[in-house]
Simulated scan of single mutants.
Amino acid sequence: MYNGENAQIFDHAKRTADMLVKMFGSRCEVAVHDFKNLKKSLVYIAGNVTGRKIGSPITDLVLTELRKDPTEIEDIPNYKTQAKNGTVMKSSTVFLRDSNGKVMGALCMNYDISQMLLFEADMKEFLSFDSNHHRSENFYSTVQDVIQDMVDQVLSGFKKAPTQLTLEEKIEAVRLLEEKGAFLIKGSTEYLASVLGVSKFTIYNYLNKIRTQNEYHLEDSV
């Protein structure tokens, strides 16, 4: 048994183990190892993922790390492991040191991800998108927002103030908005007219011209 500082270190590690398992649930296991006796280094365990019990030996991974110079021993975060029962886990190991920097034990966390891996393929399929049908879609709270955003999208492409557009550019703007279906919304004609600095009747004239041209091209292609 340890006294003083070392006892506090292991007490803190054990309380941390309990807290982690309470936080992450039954798929989480946290083991505390004391390196005084590597044959029976497991002195505390919270949760049960690997099936080990107190008195179990240290792992081969930790043994490999302990062969290094103490100054080169580093914590090992977020690595993949597998228990004898086939359970696949995400694991992390934090080495416990005293005030002199001596490595005296480790806190090892294992999280069972086996069930998650079973759903991985299904999730990838569900979260995939059809690259041949990419669409951009905005969601609005009011009809006015819809009209304003569609008009802004089109007019921003001209790189100039809306009232400074030439006749041809204004007609082109109307054509683009017609293709987007903007004029299916009541009030869009009046709004566009106010932005362009023309009357709504002018917008109607542009629309009639565009629709007539479209009908002509349609009949011509039949």
Rank of each mutant, 00 (worst) to 15 (best):
L207A: 04
A161D: 09
E178I: 10
L20H: 00
I76V: 04
E169M: 03
L165Q: 00
H33Q: 07
V143N: 06
F95K: 02
G55S: 13
A121T: 09
K180Q: 11
D112A: 08
K53V: 10
L107I: 06
Q8G: 11
K84M: 06
Q144N: 14
I147F: 00
A17Y: 03
D34W: 05
S194Q: 02
F158M: 08
V21R: 01
D11E: 12
N6P: 05
V49D: 01
V62P: 00
D145Y: 09
T166A: 02
A173V: 00
D75S: 00
K180T: 12
M1L: 12
I45T: 09
E172H: 05
L107C: 12
K68G: 10
L184Y: 15
G181S: 02
Q164V: 00
Y206R: 02
V32W: 03
I58L: 14
V21A: 12
Q164K: 08
S92V: 00
Y191T: 02
S199P: 09
S128H: 10
G47C: 15
P77G: 04
E65D: 04
K200S: 01
G197L: 05
G197Q: 03
K209C: 14
G101R: 10
I113A: 11
V174W: 00
M116C: 11
P162S: 13
I9F: 13
G187K: 09
L127G: 10
L155N: 00
L176D: 02
K102R: 13
L127F: 12
K160V: 05
S199Y: 04
E125N: 08
A83T: 14
L61I: 13
Y206W: 08
V151H: 05
S91Y: 00
E72H: 12
R27L: 05
L107F: 05
Q8M: 13
Y216T: 15
V103F: 03
R52P: 08
K90L: 12
V49H: 11
K180R: 15
S114M: 04
S41I: 01
